[in-house]
Design a protein around this nucleic acid. Structure first.
Lengths: 135, 135
DNA sequence: CTGCATCCTGACCGATACTG
DNA sequence: CAGTATCGGTCAGGATGCAG
């Protein structure tokens, strides 16, 4: 079809997606991105490539299992590359792909927002809890 | 201490918060914001105030329970206002607070990103799954 | 229409042990 | 060091029924 360029088709596809619809695949992607550790992992890797153990140290409280699971999902979704160096012991490096680099700033923005507005949220909570101490 | 203005103290507090630390309250706030329906609710209300039933319709697949729960959290955190009009039947309107208006664009950005890059993620998944069909 | 309480299932996630 | 597998407790969250 000579009139439909790749760019045009991409644009159409983009407009067809709507995360407000339950059946839309973007809904599932949005939920994946909203997973507990996604933001922190992406924010970490946004600072540069890291080894598995470095990530575990950077992101306090994440279990080895959850970290691996999160990284696997990110790898499958094309946001992160996994590079194994077959030394003894093995060394595994993770880095953002171009797609991952595109997303990372957005995830970092949420983290930054949370850190910047924590005080306001806190006082809002205090007001709310005072208003209804018992229900 | 006369040299520490309110603005300065606020700045210091902001710098002291770090979501990478497990004990930091922002970690919990980040998890709250990452909850399943937060993004979609904030994105909806970013378009303007809405009634409970309107939100339920806009956000396909959300249960009444989860919607109420999400809205309560948002209200408590000072991101959303809840206005009850004591008609029969009751009418309840939700709207973003200034703080909510500050956050909404960031949440919308994630939703938009997901919709814009769904195709790339999809093909990344296909490649990944082809590479390891049985593990 | 909006919201609360209850029940109940399944998924998430941490702990642990084992492989390369 | 990095990853997989298994077990088990916890809890998110859907369904339902009732209230204002």
């Amino acid at each position: 079809m000579p009139t439909a360029t790749a760019a045009q088709r991409r644009k159409e596809a983009r407009e067809a997606y709507d995360a407000f619809l339950a059946e839309c695949p973007t809904r599932q992607l949005l939920e994946t991105l909203s997973d507990k550790w996604m933001g922190l992992v992406l924010a970490s890797l946004g600072e540069g490539p890291m080894r598995h153990s470095e990530l575990a140290r950077r992101i306090a409280g994440v279990s080895q299992k959850m970290l691996t699971q999160t990284l696997r999902t990110l790898e499958r979704d094309g946001l992160v590359t996994r590079t194994v160096t077959p030394t003894v012991p093995v060394r595994v490096d993770y880095a953002l792909t171009p797609l991952g680099h595109d997303l990372a700033p957005v995830m970092i923005a949420i983290k930054t927002w949370a850190e910047a507005h924590m005080d306001e949220v806190r006082s809002a909570r205090e007001s709310y809890d005072e208003t209804r101490p018992s229900g």
